[in-house]
Amino acid sequence: MTITQLYYVLAVAEHKNFTLAAEKCFVTQPTLSMQIQKLEDELKIQIFDRTKKPIQLTEIGEKIVNQAKNIVNEAGRITDIVEQQKGYIGGEFKIGIIPTVMPTLLPMFLGNFIKKYPKVNLIIEEHTTEEIIKRLKNGHLDCAIAATPLEEENLKEIVLYYEPFVAYIPEGNSSSEKTEIEISDLDIENILLLQDGHCFRDGILNLCKNNKYLNENHFQIESGSFETLIKLADEGLGTTLLPYLHTLDLNEKNKSKLKHFKNPKPAREVSLIYPKNELKIHIIDALRAVISGVVRGAIAFSDVEIISPKKQA
């Protein structure tokens, strides 16, 4: 039994196809198939049911894959241990970021991080919170930036900042003349939301549910971007809520339509998330320091009420 054989098994288990798994592993399909067959012969069991399309794990195969994940991940951490001991901050580092954070936060810290740590090869991927959790647990990401708390047993969270919700209310709305608003001031039946799958959307739903003003069926229009929601609001189709950092790049005309909430301001908690057994802590600490340094000047709210990003029944 070898680490390479287990790596090939994990690839087939993920892609459910020998040819595709071989491509992802940069080997020929016969080579990958032969190594997996050798492992099955050694163990005297079948890991995969090849009669099904797509290929499925057998019952014992599922148990082997779960253990193989631990073995392959731990083997890969030997290099991390050596690099950490040497104080070397470099190598490949995969980070996932949720869509509602990526466009505002990434430009703020990426340039600074690359200049300070040029030996780190950052691989940045945009994923939903659900996909981020899955990839962190499968070892496909080293860390992530997402709204928290997620309450995942095997993941650790380091808070980066608190980002308030800001209402975008066009002229003519009953609350458009107010300096500060409360949740009760929102026209709940006409709020425009991001599409399902965005945790910011779930945060808004939770915010309104917590205040007992919401029947989710009141929401009629959903979109994939804040820019579209703003344009729809300007067309008189409703109001929307935006994350604070997104409001900084609006033009002056649109900024005049923003309404902040009274204290404690409803906000989302944005954190670095990583597996508890992650050994690339030296890179995570470097990332946290850089992000905290650039965000501190743009956002500094303390009197906030954290709204959960998780769907609530």
Rank of each mutant, 00 (worst) to 15 (best):
L6V: 01
Y7K: 14
V9L: 12
V9R: 05
L10W: 03
A11G: 03
C25R: 03
V27Y: 07
Q29C: 00
P30S: 07
P30A: 10
T31S: 07
T31W: 00
M34K: 13
Q35N: 13
I36M: 13
Q37I: 05
K38F: 04
K38G: 03
K38Q: 13
E40I: 11
D41Q: 14
E42Y: 08
I45S: 08
R50N: 15
K52W: 10
P54L: 09
G61K: 05
K63G: 11
N66R: 14
N66V: 09
K69V: 01
N70M: 02
N73E: 08
T79L: 15
I81C: 10
Q84H: 05
Y88E: 09
I89S: 10
G90M: 00
E92W: 09
F93K: 13
K94Y: 09
P99I: 05
P103V: 05
T104R: 02
T104W: 02
L105V: 11
P107Q: 06
L110V: 06
G111I: 08
K116C: 00
Y117H: 15
K119Y: 11
E126G: 04
E130H: 07
I132E: 01
N138V: 08
G139M: 00
G139Q: 00
H140I: 12
D142V: 02
D142A: 03
A144E: 03
I145Q: 01
I145P: 02
T148R: 05
E151Q: 14
E152R: 11
E153L: 07
E163A: 05
P164R: 12
V166T: 13
Y168P: 04
N173L: 05
S174T: 07
S174F: 08
S174P: 06
S174R: 07
S176I: 07
T179K: 10
S184L: 14
S184G: 13
S184W: 10
L186M: 08
L186C: 10
E189R: 15
N190R: 15
N190C: 05
F200S: 05
D202L: 15
D202I: 09
L205Y: 14
L207A: 02
K212W: 06
Y213P: 01
L214Y: 12
N217L: 01
Q220V: 00
E227T: 13
L229M: 15
A233D: 11
D234F: 00
D234K: 10
E235L: 13
E235M: 11
G236V: 04
T239N: 10
L250N: 05
K265T: 14
P266K: 06
P266I: 03
A267H: 13
R268T: 06
L272G: 02
I273L: 00
N277S: 11
L279M: 11
I284M: 06
A286D: 03
V290M: 01
S292T: 02
V295A: 11
A298K: 15
I299K: 04
A300W: 13
D303I: 01
D303L: 01
V304D: 11
S308Y: 06
A313I: 08
